[in-house]
């Protein structure tokens, strides 16, 4: 029931997204026909291309066409890569997702313990360390961190592989199961490819992790501080429960709700930050795809990208709501 109701509330926002992206891409300056006519086109050649693209028809007609195509699961064809948008998004989405998830996992693994440690000893060196790391992480733009990491670990030290996308030039992709190279290569029992894919992932994932460390560590610290100072913790302490049990079972479980909310938010803006990281590491993800399409006024991929992202957010929010229910029984009861 909860699931259905939550899904129903998402419908208007998806309809809104469809209309807004359609109008926005048309309102952007730039003439795709002129762009694609090439450097030596005549006005007549531009008009021919405009007609081929259907851009000479009225906006409502174009919109109806677009809806019809959507209903058939057709997101149109990208002009800059020449491929169907749906196929491209499906092959590129796992690349972005693998990178973002790994970055997020890396970030959680570092940020949560760091936040807890900082909250247990406020004012101690570990707390200051936490503060420095988070301030540095949040104030460095991702493309800068990315380029810096490439410069140090690839160019100067030569220990990281060349920033050439998901695999080095002489490895070939594992057989397609999930599109996640790490999982696919393990399924195929292909350790060299697993190693190659992991090596390519380390720097971009670290870039994303550095960027997302700050909000997670800070919110963990703040909510742990609140939980540790609350009355039930004092009662638990007075009852002589072990420190371990107090911190991890009573305090942390109560502190984790805001951390999950932040995690959801961080995940969504990581998908955004991805655009720049993908550019730096030549990562074949959805972000770089959308930006390139935007520069070329290539409508179809931009619309497809925004729509996919909107759907992803809806699913993500749904997932977070469900996790809430697991962590906090009150949420279930209210529903």
């Amino acid at each position: 029931m909860l699931l259905l109701r939550r899904l129903a509330t998402a419908l208007p926002s998806i309809a809104g997204v469809i209309i807004v992206t359609f109008l926005l891409t048309r309102a952007l300056p730039g003439d795709p026909a002129a762009y694609f006519a090439g450097p030596a086109a005549t006005t007549q050649a531009i008009d021919e291309i405009r007609h081929q693209l259907g851009l000479d028809r009225s906006l409502p007609v174009q919109f109806l066409d677009y809806l019809g195509q959507l209903a058939r699961g057709d997101l149109g064809t990208s002009l800059s890569t020449g491929q169907p948008v749906l196929a491209e998004l499906l092959t590129r989405l796992p690349a972005s997702a693998e990178l973002t998830l790994l970055g997020l996992v890396l970030s959680v693994v570092i940020a949560v313990p760091l936040g807890i440690a900082a909250a247990m000893r406020p004012g101690a060196p570990v707390d200051h360390f936490c503060r420095v790391v988070t301030t540095a992480g949040v104030s460095l733009p991702t493309f800068f961190t990315g380029l810096l990491l490439v410069y140090v670990f690839y160019y100067l030290m030569g220990i990281a592989p060349a920033p050439l996308g998901r695999l080095d030039v002489f490895s070939s992709a594992p057989p397609h199961w999930t599109g996640f190279y790490l999982i696919d290569s393990l399924l195929a029992r292909d350790l060299p490819t697993f190693g190659a894919a992991l090596a390519q992932l380390v720097l971009p994932a670290a870039t994303l992790a550095i960027f997302s460390l700050a909000p997670l560590a800070r919110i963990t610290r703040a909510s742990m501080l609140a939980a540790l100072g609350s009355e039930f913790v004092r009662t638990a302490r007075a009852s002589g429960l072990s420190r371990r049990r107090i911190v991890y079972v009573y305090a942390f479980r109560n502190a984790v709700l805001p951390v999950i909310t932040t995690l959801g938010m961080v995940f969504s803006f990581l998908l955004g930050a991805n655009v720049l990281v993908e550019k730096v590491f030549a990562w074949p993800g959805v972000g770089s795809y959308a930006v390139e399409a935007l520069i070329a006024s290539d409508y179809a991929p931009v619309q497809g990208f925004v729509l996919t992202m909107a759907l992803l957010y809806v699913l993500l929010n749904l997932g977070i709501d469900l996790v809430y229910g697991l962590v906090d029984p009150r949420v279930r009861l209210e529903a």
């Binding site: 380029l147 490439v150 410069y151 690839y154 160019y155 030569g158 060349a162 920033p163 050439l164 996308g165 030039v169 550019k279 730096v280 590491f281 030549a282 770089s288 390139e292």
Partner: peptide, 18 residues
């Protein structure tokens, strides 16, 4: 290979990978 970042294209050729 298409490498969008000019800085990386330069690093790759200088390191001898390309």
């Amino acid at each position: 290979r298409m490498v969008p970042s000019a800085g990386n294209r330069r690093a790759l050729i200088e390191r001898g990978d390309a």
